[in-house]
Design a protein around this nucleic acid. Sequence first.
DNA 1: TGCAGAAAATGACCATAGTCAATAAATTTG
DNA 2: CAAATTTATTGACTATGGTCATTTTCTGCA
Lengths: 196, 196
Amino acid sequence: MTRKVQARRLATRDRLLAAGREIILSSGLSGLRTEDVVQRAGTAKGTFFAHFVDRDHFLAALLAETLGAELAGLTAPQDREGVMRSLDRIYRLFAADVETVALLARFSGPAGAGMGLDRLICLVVERLAEGVARMQTRGEVGSSRAPEVLAEALMAQVFHAAASAQCGLHGDAGAVRARADQLLVDMSEALLWPDG
Amino acid sequence: MTRKVQARRLATRDRLLAAGREIILSSGLSGLRTEDVVQRAGTAKGTFFAHFVDRDHFLAALLAETLGAELAGLTAPQDREGVMRSLDRIYRLFAADVETVALLARFSGPAGAGMGLDRLICLVVERLAEGVARMQTRGEVGSSRAPEVLAEALMAQVFHAAASAQCGLHGDAGAVRARADQLLVDMSEALLWPDG
DNA sequence: TGCAGAAAATGACCATAGTCAATAAATTTG
DNA sequence: CAAATTTATTGACTATGGTCATTTTCTGCA
């Protein structure tokens, strides 16, 4: 017989996540080691993996928290400038860390691992689609394509720009970043305003 | 004083790569363990890391070989159908394996790690740009955006579709894959032919 | 209340990527 | 050619993610 989840389990999970949050604050996503997490949370190693299938799923849960908080106030963009502002905001969050890019690549697709990150991305796409749809009715964006398709295509540009921004870990990082910034603008505009 | 690279070193490198190739053939990218590689190549563990900064760089080198061979015959697409054929071909290669997607996310940007994979992607983008430029002169694609931008945006769609296709490791894999396939078509067409 | 069984937690243990001081093999130089 | 120097290789060692049989704690029920 399957019994209900005990409060103890939820408390443990929360302690693990809280520990992870603290560690990330000081060491970043890449600097998080499971050993540190369980020590800080006061649990055994095995407990960690009884709650999260692997380190990446744990990080994804934390990332979803962070991004969720940052993107909570995201509203459907109203105009050209609004779209570019929104995209840039999301892009900056995504490009913050190499691990962020890797986690998004692994978990952000449709039917993701269901740990929150995928749902968060879906939500962002929906917001963008709302904005696009509204602009389509106003004739500011071509109407021959579904707003959902355009919105997802925009997200693809954001992902790609974020990945590009992180690829240049050697060489002139500033130049690579600048190129990625510009790339996002150009690609997104090409998608929504193909005629200028 | 800096002396030239010894033939011995190149031979060792080749043995490592050859070993990796064989292993991948039977076990796939994900199944490759460095221990197996060095054993098969008849070298020590340390030698492996004296040649490749980490496992991923090694895999990237091998992946570049494979993709390079597969994409050697890629020509600039001539028309609408040609573009979609090319994109689909690249997409299928990228979506072949979870590790492939991860490696591309890490190494394929501009100023990548310089181990061949990044150059390969640049080459593919150039080919696409050629095709796009030719179609622009014929008026089959809008001319207000640089062909390089459009080409890179197309690659972003391919990356995203490939990532999406791999996200659904649980659930109905076939349905997830089908969705990713369609997504690529829709997003790419929206980019090049916004008016239908 | 106490017992059967399920859920949760444990930590010793394993797998594997990656390091580095030591050694061997080339190459230059006098 | 022998010593000096640089390049290449080695393998024992570390770091860390992840497993699993065992133990502990909780829950429902007679």
